[in-house]
Design a protein around this nucleic acid. Sequence first.
DNA 1: CTTATTGCAAAGTGTTTGCATCTTA
DNA 2: TAAGATGCAAACACTTTGCAATAAG
Lengths: 163, 163
Amino acid sequence: MSAMSNTNQIDDVKKLFSDYLVNNGHRQTPERISILSEIYDQDNHFSVELLYIIMKNRNLSISRATIYNTIELLIDCGLIIKHQFGKNIAQYEKSYAYKQHDHLICMDCGKVFEFCDPRIHQIQKTTEEMNNLKIVKHSLNFYGKCNTLEENKSCKYIISNKV
Amino acid sequence: MSAMSNTNQIDDVKKLFSDYLVNNGHRQTPERISILSEIYDQDNHFSVELLYIIMKNRNLSISRATIYNTIELLIDCGLIIKHQFGKNIAQYEKSYAYKQHDHLICMDCGKVFEFCDPRIHQIQKTTEEMNNLKIVKHSLNFYGKCNTLEENKSCKYIISNKV
DNA sequence: CTTATTGCAAAGTGTTTGCATCTTA
DNA sequence: TAAGATGCAAACACTTTGCAATAAG
């Protein structure tokens, strides 16, 4: 989705995070930077537990508490987005330079597909106007059965498929 | 939203649940019926814990385990809907004879407003067609700040406001 | 050198499970 | 009276918190 190479992207993202930390009186710790790198290395949605295991497997010294703490900062500066796909486990995904999209979730296997439809913004605009408030974000999920879903079909509305 | 009185509605709902139980080889227990009654007595979204406390306060003998068990059955037969409004607490609401609607959630106080916009069905239909699968349900939530929301304004798109 | 941050473990919270007891069909 | 349901408590899973040790600025 991005015209940038991944190499440039991670640099951009680190710069953004670094600036955010400085501007908000937070310290730049190696843990925070390595969590950011690890997240931008992931192509799928992830939970805190999964990220913790991945980092442990890479022999990175990290604690769950630090991951939770850092994720709060990353949400605050807009570098990741938090989702709740109907389970009591928060799922996160990187959000810098990624096209806005919504999710199609398989009720059987939990697989998450992404799609986008411009009409959601029209609905959001209407809802904003009718209620005279600023909507900060939205979450649109469709739930279905993916046994009929062909993963690799080329479809301009499907951005990517993720587990 | 319903043309029925509440008295008739609870009778209809009990009949539906009763039929569902019989048809699916489940037993009709007083606990299951009283949980259903309690839920249809509520006008707001509720969590399992809240329902448990409400029933305990009414001196009804009930356990959390039975509530969780019964709620599964009620979801299965379509009498209630489960929501996850971004927190790790499942919220439920009765769904019989209530107009389909989506939610507008205040990021500050957690208040939940309801609205409906027919365009969501057009998006759903497109997504179904493009992916050749049956979408079973959807969840659309807008998140904003309700200090600018006037609760009592008459607006045809706002069905009701709930906490 | 001061104070934010880390990491561990303990505590918290919502949900699920195991099992003895009870009850519907 | 046999299989299913209840209720309690223990177990679970995810998240938050307390606090001593550490390290950024």
